[in-house]
């Protein structure tokens, strides 16, 4: 399968701080990858390096097999990019900016543009500087999608949007990308969005990779386990997170759960009753974030 995005040992150092450290990831064609992390984890820096907008301090990354620092217009004709603080020519009206941008893309799909306009409800005659943030984001999304890119990079595009707009936005992206088999690499703080949209999840913290796998696999291996009727201490391993005890009740999250995990616990604690429950991505993310926070608390 073709690899659309690839990063190897990617690093970015600002003065005395490592924003990103030795990050490697890959996005195969046709997959949607959610890029998660706490505030300041290095998501935006990583995305900008992937898109060639800033130069890495170390390692390399590529889009469509070409070094991100050497991207050509042809590569950008296949890539739609929307970021939280991306500039639009806000002295133009929406209609003018669409006309200007469409001329840059021979592949611009007029019919698709109209379809997106219908779905997103963008005010065309108003100067962009007078549009709301949601309207600007929707316009940016249209400008990133109407030429039918093979890759869509979205850097927290949902931030600051009201729930209704975000829902519209997400539904549109979801519908269109599923129909067109696009690859998506997006960062967000809203885990619910990820569950709707993502096939794969990459989680970073303090610029270091924590998780990189498919959403299904991740949800498969993370389980909440409740043990009742045991006063024996639970042996803490790297696979156990968030261990809590209350009387004879122990609760923890197992990060490497498989078919044999329950039997192994039962063998070690024959008297206990074991309850295993699945976790939402949000719960997994919070558990991992807490772990990271414990291991390297921020000042």
């Amino acid at each position: 399968m073709e690899t659309i995005i690839e990063a190897r040992g990617l690093a970015k150092r600002y003065r005395h701080k490592d924003a990103v450290h030795d990050l490697s990831l890959a996005l195969p064609a046709g997959r949607a990858c959610a890029f998660l992390g706490r505030n300041g984890a290095g998501k935006t820096t990583t995305i900008k390096m992937l898109a060639g907008l800033i130069r890495p301090s170390g390692g390399s990354c590529s889009l469509f097999g070409r070094d991100s620092q050497q991207l050509r217009p042809g590569d950008w004709r296949k890539t739609g990019y929307v970021s939280e603080n991306q500039e639009l020519y806000d002295w133009m009206t929406g209609e003018e900016l669409i006309a200007f941008t469409s001329a840059l893309y021979p592949e611009w799909d007029k019919a698709f543009e109209k379809e997106l306009l219908g779905k997103l409800g963008i005010p065309l005659q108003r100067r962009i500087s007078r549009c709301s943030r949601g309207e600007k984001v929707k316009l940016a999304l249209l400008l990133a999608m109407a030429f039918r890119p093979r890759l869509l990079i979205l850097d927290e595009p949902f931030a600051g949007l009201d729930p209704l707009v975000r829902s519209e936005f997400l539904d549109t992206v979801l519908e269109i990308t599923r129909q067109n088999d696009w690859s998506i690499f997006f960062s967000t703080h809203d885990i619910d969005d990820v569950e709707k949209l993502a096939d794969d999840v990459v989680i970073i913290d303090e610029g270091r990779l924590q998780v990189s796998e498919s959403l299904d696999t991740l949800q498969e291996r993370f389980r909440r386990i409740d043990l009742y009727g045991s006063h024996m201490p639970i042996e803490e391993t790297s696979a156990i997170l968030n261990l809590q005890r209350e009387g004879d009740h122990s609760r923890f999250i197992h990060t490497a759960f498989d078919g044999e995990t329950t039997a192994a616990i039962q063998a070690a604690h024959p008297q206990v009753r074991i309850e295993v429950s699945t976790l939402s991505l949000k719960e997994i993310f919070i558990a991992l974030a807490k772990k990271c926070q414990t291991e390297s608390p921020r000042s």
């Binding site: 050509r72 603080n85 020519y89």
Partner: peptide, 16 residues
């Protein structure tokens, strides 16, 4: 040099 500039993520070559 501004990474948020509109043209940076568009098919605009350095020569253009």
């Amino acid at each position: 040099l501004r990474d948020t500039a509109f043209h940076r993520s568009r098919p605009v070559s350095q020569g253009t």
